[in-house]
Design a protein around this nucleic acid. Sequence first.
DNA 1: TTAATTTGACCACG
DNA 2: CGTGGTCAAATTAA
Length: 370
Amino acid sequence: MDDTISLILHGCKLAKDLELNLANSASQPETLSKLCEEIIRVFANARERLHVHQLGTTLYPHPVLFREPQDLQQQQNTDPILQEWLGTSCTSAMETLFHQTQGVMAERSALGLIESKIGGGIQMGSGGLAIESGSRSDVQAGDASDSGRGSSSSEKRPRTRINDDAEKRTVRVPAQQFGNTEIPPEDGFSWRKYGQKEILGSRFPRAYYRCTNQNLYNCPAKKQVQRLDDDPCRLEVVYRGEHTCHMSATAPSAPPPAPGITQEMAQTMIGQPQPSAATSLGRWVEFRLGPGGGAGSSSSSSSSSSMAAGSSGSAAGPSTAGRFGKEADYPITDMADAMFNSGSSSTNSMELIFPSISEEKRDQPSDKNN
DNA sequence: TTAATTTGACCACG
DNA sequence: CGTGGTCAAATTAA
């Protein structure tokens, strides 16, 4: 039995090594594959042995054998670091990676679309999974502290800022074709919008979201959503930080949906795979002009489709319906113009889509947010 | 009443 | 100093 324990510990060490070197090996799928295989082999071997032991136990119950769990614990206690990792890091990292991968895979399979920006990122499958991982060092740690809260107005708000070393994953997803096209596709997590900013050189504003459970569970996960300049029908979503909230048994956050549900959801939202810009716009216009299709019905449908998609949280998927519902009142022809002339420099599409913003920019050219 | 969003201001970083 | 990220009061929605 001792050698079985050793085997398990060996597997754990291998997994830990893999985690530590994940950033380096991320661009080497072959290496990753080999490492994973070895880990699987080790654990499979251990399971075989345990299975044999189990059979022996049931057939020949023996006090010594019943003590084995304790022995296991004792053995694990000899390596507290490893045990800590088993309780936190390993499961956290693995689960997060799994969920993210699963989510994107589901999206990808449903949409048949997502492109990779490839920057030393994790690539899976021949088609190129759309996870771009900055994977430079670690998840930003200080960010969750959000230290600004509670400070008096006279004090300077100490702020932490995401450093560039923070893990960063970029995915490009089709914008919703009906309702609020600014809403990023549901990804199984619950997000809360905390800012929006005009980005220099981009025609579309960038929205900032953080995990709804940030305050409760110090979940550091964040994401930025921005419509692509060269393809207004798609959104670029940048994920930063890892979700820790769903690790808690009592966490109210939505656990990542089952793959099937995600696919259904994605199909519900997107309708059909890989639409052209014209198709997308057509559907959007059709919805907007449809029977009884006022701004109100737009927003409600948009949010209900998001909710029906299996998101359990109240804010799963940013419900920007109110604000963008109003903005959607702008002439559809203008929106169409913006979409179709996405490449033209003669027309300022931002102005057409967000006239108020553009006006503000004209009035205060320095920085409307500064 | 509570929670989410909006948005101007603040702040860190290059 | 410009830019991007975040804060937090005000506003809106549920």
